[in-house]
């Protein structure tokens, strides 16, 4: 799912750590906002909706819209309220397993 990012990083000098996204290694800036870091890494789709399976990505970036829900270390959370740390296990709700998206 990783594509060329539509976002540019102004200061790309932060130390990088490795997280796992759907089982694949991904290098993100340590301490960054997780939703912003994933967008900048070229990850536009964060989940698929439980109702129609439509793809969604971050919308408000301030914890209000819940469109950036991802499963982090087994708990469904808002990516825009999380910080990148080494070893995070991030799983996105696919169209087939979408029920987990509103489990929290």
């Amino acid at each position: 799912m990783k594509t060329a990012s539509p976002f540019l990083e102004i200061d790309a000098d932060a130390a990088r750590v490795t997280v796992r996204l759907d089982g694949a290694d991904l290098s993100l800036p340590a301490g960054a906002n997780l939703a912003a870091a994933l967008l900048a890494a070229g990850v536009p789709v964060f989940r698929h909706t439980p109702v129609s399976g439509a793809p969604r990505g971050p919308f408000c970036m301030m914890g209000a819209c819940f469109d950036c829900l991802v499963e982090v270390d087994g708990v469904t959370r808002q990516a825009c309220l999380l910080t990148v740390e080494e070893g995070l296990e991030i799983v996105r709700a696919g169209p087939a397993t979408a029920e987990s998206a509103d489990a929290s």
């Binding site: 102004i10 919308f59 301030m62």
Partner: peptide, 26 residues
């Protein structure tokens, strides 16, 4: 407006403020 890649202008600003991440073709 629900498509990935559509965000609020406020979200765009938050990306710049907090993360130094700016949209390239917006």
């Amino acid at each position: 407006w629900t498509l990935p890649g559509v965000m609020t202008a406020g979200a765009g600003q938050i990306l710049i403020k907090e993360s130094g991440v700016v949209a390239g073709r917006a």
